[in-house]
Design a protein around this nucleic acid. Structure first.
Lengths: 362, 362
DNA sequence: CTGAAAGCGCTTACAG
DNA sequence: CTGAAAGCGCTTACAG
């Protein structure tokens, strides 16, 4: 039986000959009801095709059982996997998922957060696009909104977060290249930042071993830091001509800088890409220039994308546990929503170096 | 100013010295208000950090400005792109997106639809996991819920839908192989179906040219039909040993059947994969067997994944406009939500054959 | 233009 | 165990 118009609790109560309070109790699963009335109500609900209106319930309880997520770009494999992890946990706990894209732009993120807050999500998972200016996130926290950060931290914002141990993972990858005999190793990274010229200053300080507040660095900067540390540990100089900045989250930008690198004297023998987008750009450049891996250039990529395992040769990568990151973030958020009050936690997930065939021994 | 507790319209009205009706009018942007009161209300709202509660508003208006989406698996590149397209249009129109995964299982889809309906989404975009049994979708339609189908149709369900012209696209791809001189062409497809043995019967009918109701066929069956039509048109026999059924949406299953195919006498000279998952499985098998493309086997894949353009050789593919499909679906849904009442539309989007280097001329 | 009142569809004390 | 009443935070007629 499927009626045209939506039945309400009042309709069901009327049909069952009980009060709306009683009907609500059996339909909502709270309070006690006699078996007899319960049956009548259930029967009436069935006949009328009753479907609870979650809005009305949420307005009273103050809970929507909905999680909000602000991802960079759901089309990107990194976010797609993280989202799937979040979704797995949300679904298992009966929560819905409201998803938006920020395209790594602060203005869009602010807008997304406002939308999700108005829709009264019970908590929010955000990949902050700006690790310094994030007043909207501070406000959210001040208002008591449960909040978990993924992939990046925000300066001064003490909330739960889950990320990859980027510095350690990049260091391990680059040391692996050095151990294979490579001495000139390139790196391609987004390194987006407002302050132009900052890269030089950063390199100078990192190479000198000056202390660097790495916690709130963007992942690509952290991975660059791991690259530099590997060089320092192994006693190798860092050649600034080998540290490539794409300047944006775009495969095209990465392709351009890698192309230039490989067609200018002083080429590296190995390349380290700092994420899936950079990896794709690098691959396009290498294909275009008909350079062979690993004969002409050894390669280690950050983030293990599907094609890297069946590509010939297999691509050696730093595998991030993307799905597990999403699941961990969702689990932490759910704990906060339940009211758990331990101090802010930072979960740094280890990345695994998966050795395949893209690194030549020199 | 960021207060701890949430301010309501009543709080703002009190602070501004007006009625809740007046405060609501300026904050909600409906009705008329004098400039003077408007200023007071805005000021008070600002001071109190007022944020509208979309739940309360929706309960009255009956509109949530939220779209529900049931995807197969948001981690899969096909769905990730489609979702991005939906998201683009939703966002541009101020709509939120509630997203769930069905994992192509009817039970999960039914559960998702129920969740989204209870949350009162204004409309639903679904990739139906069962093209025959879909009472939940019929019910939705009967209750007046705007509904758009993507990728698949449902028997007897007259609603808007957008899909790729699978038969034509597959036919074109296979004819391209035949034109290149191939006579033994394999195909790997999911071909999921309850009725075992159905493949043989289907092949027999299709090869005989019997009329087949193709509209509600699953995409993989439609693509198989295109494969068969290409053979008929070109006067080539269809060898059942070359029509591979993976039996599930899994790269592993595809890998297994392709491995068997390529290690059994009577190998094909070319292979057609019917979607991204099958393509991945096929690539794994070929890599494992160290078979070269296109020297040992020519290949055309359905759906143009990122890596196919920089793979060496480039993979010739049938490119589906995934993003545009999502955008079209969202646009159609929004029209229905606005109340437009034209008859159910079927948008069949053309797929483009992108020629790269994976097809050898024989 | 503005306010008092009713109401969206539920849940929550509170009597009985 | 059950019902009448109030109320969640808004919007919507309806007077004035």
């Amino acid at each position: 039986m499927t009626p045209k118009s939506k039945a309400t609790i009042a309709d069901v109560a009327r049909a069952a000959g009980v009060s709306t309070a009683t009907a609500g109790r059996v339909l909502g699963g709270y309070g006690y009801t006699s078996e007899e009335k319960k049956e009548h109500v259930l029967k009436a609900a069935q006949d009328l095709g009753y479907r609870p209106n979650a809005l009305a319930r949420s307005l009273i309880t103050g809970k929507t059982r909905t999680l909000g997520v602000v991802a960079g770009d759901i089309q990107n494999p990194f976010y797609a996997s993280v989202l799937r992890g979040i979704s797995n946990v949300a679904e298992a706990n009966g929560f819905g998922l409201l998803i938006t894209n920020s395209d790594e732009a602060r203005a869009k993120e602010v807008h997304s957060v406002e939308l999700l807050a108005q829709k009264q999500v019970d908590g929010l998972i955000v990949t902050p696009s700006d690790t310094r200016k994030a007043r909207h996130l501070h406000n959210l926290k001040a208002m008591g909104m449960p909040l978990v950060l993924i992939d990046r931290a925000v300066a001064g914002l003490m909330v739960d977060r889950v990320a990859t141990d980027n510095i350690a993972a990049a260091e391990q990858a680059v040391r692996h290249l050095i151990a294979a005999g490579h001495r000139r190793i390139g790196i391609v990274a987004e390194l987006v930042d407002e302050e132009s010229g900052k890269l030089d200053a950063f390199l100078a300080r990192a190479v000198a071993g000056d202390p660097i507040e790495s916690e709130t660095l963007y992942p690509s900067w952290q991975r660059l830091l791991g690259y530099i540390r590997a060089h320092r540990i192994e006693g190798l100089p860092v050649d600034p001509r080998l540290t490539l900045r794409a300047g944006s989250y775009s495969a095209l930008a990465a392709q351009a800088v890698v192309s230039r690198l490989m067609t200018t004297p002083g080429q590296p023998t190995a390349l380290f890409t700092t994420d899936g987008t950079m990896s794709e750009g690098a691959m396009r450049a290498l294909t275009e220039l008909k350079l062979s891996i690993p004969q002409d250039l050894s390669l280690i990529c950050f983030d293990d994308l599907d094609w890297m395992s069946f590509h010939r040769p297999g691509i050696t990568t730093v595998a991030q546990p993307r799905l597990a990151m999403g699941e961990a973030a969702a689990r932490m958020l759910l704990e906060r929503i339940r009211g758990e009050a331990f101090p802010p936690r930072t979960v740094l997930m280890p990345a695994e170096l998966v050795e395949r065939g893209s690194v030549a021994r020199l």
